[in-house]
Design a binder for these strands. Structure first.
Length: 203
DNA sequence: CTACGGATTTTCT
DNA sequence: GAAAATCCGTAGT
């Protein structure tokens, strides 16, 4: 399957978020391949979006990568213990990004099960299987993504996204999660997910 | 099933 | 010093 190229990411975060659904996120490390279908995303639309880390043109060390070229990773640390993975979108100096909130495991299931629960995949309960990757911090843990993966080029060879083999049947557009501080931006329909998929974090 | 609070530390004011 | 793009365990319905 074809790796997504720079021009895929060089669009608004809303367009990239919608089009990432059904694509395959791949992480190759230490001879292990993790891959998972993207089933839930959120767009963070830059300096005018009160929910975005780059709102108002804020430009700190943490958010610097969002001001660079599209198609790079933005991984941040939150709540003292979790990481979240984003894809930098839009053009250089327009700090937009897409948060990946849910993925469906495809390859590397045993390593994902180990990373999350220190168990074999076969020993997981049904609840645990779904809980492997149905949230932004859960999928980072499962796919072994952390601060070392901030600022990586997704057009590179260890962390990238490929075209999926099936396009999503039905896409739901709704409001974003966990942004109670964002006033009217809370109500913008910038979260997208594949209808009916069990790895969506919040229905 | 839903609701709530605690965990834990970086990041920014 | 406060808040945070979350998760998990426990308690209640």
């Amino acid at each position: 399957m074809k790796k997504l190229e720079r021009n895929f990411y060089d669009r608004s975060a809303v367009d990239v978020a919608r089009d990432l659904l059904g694509k395959l996120l791949v992480h190759d490390v230490d001879g292990i391949r993790y891959s998972a279908r993207i089933v839930e995303t959120e767009a963070y639309c830059g300096i005018t979006d009160k929910a975005a880390h780059s709102y108002g043109g804020r430009r700190t060390e943490r958010v610097e990568v969002m001001y660079g070229k599209p198609g790079f990773s933005y991984v941040y640390f939150v709540y003292g213990m979790h990481f979240c993975f984003n894809v930098v979108s839009s053009s250089k100096d327009d700090p937009q990004a897409v948060l990946v909130r849910g993925v469906e495991p495809v390859e590397g299931l045993d390593m994902m099960a180990y990373n999350r629960f220190h168990m074999d995949y076969a020993a997981l309960s049904c609840t645990q299987k779904v809980s492997l990757t149905n949230g932004p911090a859960k999928l980072c843990k499962a796919l072994a993504l952390d601060r070392r993966h901030n600022g990586l080029d997704l057009c590179g060879s260890s962390l990238f996204i490929v075209q999926g083999d099936v396009s999503p049947s039905s896409i739901v557009e709704t409001t974003r999660i966990g942004i109670g501080y964002a006033e009217e931006a809370q109500d913008y329909p910038w979260r997208f997910y594949i209808a009916g998929n069990p790895y969506v974090s919040v229905k």
